[in-house]
Design a protein around this nucleic acid. Structure first.
Lengths: 151, 151
DNA sequence: CCTATTTTCATGCAGTTGCATTAAAATAAA
DNA sequence: TTTATTTTAATGCAACTGCATGAAAATAGG
């Protein structure tokens, strides 16, 4: 396995880095704004609720949410509290692990996902998808995959 | 001009969207962590200081910083206050515009840029650049350019 | 079995961000 | 010119985040 860690990043790569950070932040902000304008909660809520829906029994432990969303542990803990306060999830004691809790998607949470998706999808289309061809999107997907954490 | 705003984003494009958000957040977090571990300030400080250095007279008005960094107005205002408190920039009354102030990079600010760059560059290399070939980086740059605000 | 370590989740506190508003100056409109 | 609008910057307040720490249960080690 070759170690390129000690080489220097080329100017072109540094430009690509800068553009990745700038463009993703810009597009994400536009999407967040569209959700907000529609009176909907931020994307982080959608992400967590969606991970729950995708899970067996629409249920996950906070530590699983953390792994799937890249949110910090303390942010997951508090976000789940907020979601629970809003009636979108339920917190129960985990049966098999005394430390853990089981977070379950409620019907209300499921409904919110339904309500957010059309707005979210339209925002993805107008801020991202419409600027790329299918091939370009596939290439982007492949290249970004190279950046994801290994193992 | 064709308007693709009303079409639906394809599943592949939605996957690309998700990966853009996830991968950029993951990589950015790694880079921020490396700066923090080195006892250095966050990237936002670097960005503002660098924009100042690049500017005529190492000087910009807050509104210009805002445009170049995508930071919100109130965040620029307060970030500049923090930078000024740390002695990295100076705030002066703008001569030609009574509303504006002129933010100038200090020698200390310039030194901080010098100190941060090796750490920052190494982080870009290990978290981003080393995973891509030159061609891939160029392609990424081109594709992400399509997402930037047109104006 | 008993102790040490690790894993999981919560929380106090300080710092930061977002929102809404304000104030002041510049520009446009009447 | 006088008034209305726009631009620029700051700030009070509430919400959110990061850090450090704590508590409790599970796991590992002796």
């Amino acid at each position: 396995m070759i170690d390129k860690t000690n080489e220097d990043a080329s100017p072109a790569k540094i430009e690509a880095w800068a553009r990745l950070i700038r463009s993703s932040a810009a597009v994400l902000e536009q999407v967040e704004t569209k959700l907000k304008v529609a009176g909907l909660p931020p994307l982080a809520w959608y992400d967590v609720l969606l991970e729950l829906r995708r899970s067996e029994g629409a249920q996950l432990r906070p530590v699983e949410v953390e792994k799937r969303t890249l949110l910090a542990q303390y942010n997951v803990s508090r976000l789940i509290d907020r979601l629970a306060s809003a009636g979108l999830v339920e917190k129960r004691k985990s049966p098999e692990d005394g430390r853990g809790i089981a977070v379950t998607l409620t019907a209300k949470g499921d409904t919110l996902l339904e309500d957010m998706w059309p707005v979210y999808k339209a925002a993805i289309q107008s801020e991202f998808a419409c600027h790329l061809s299918e091939d370009e999107a596939a290439t982007l997907f492949r290249l970004l995959g190279k950046l994801l954490p290994r193992e």
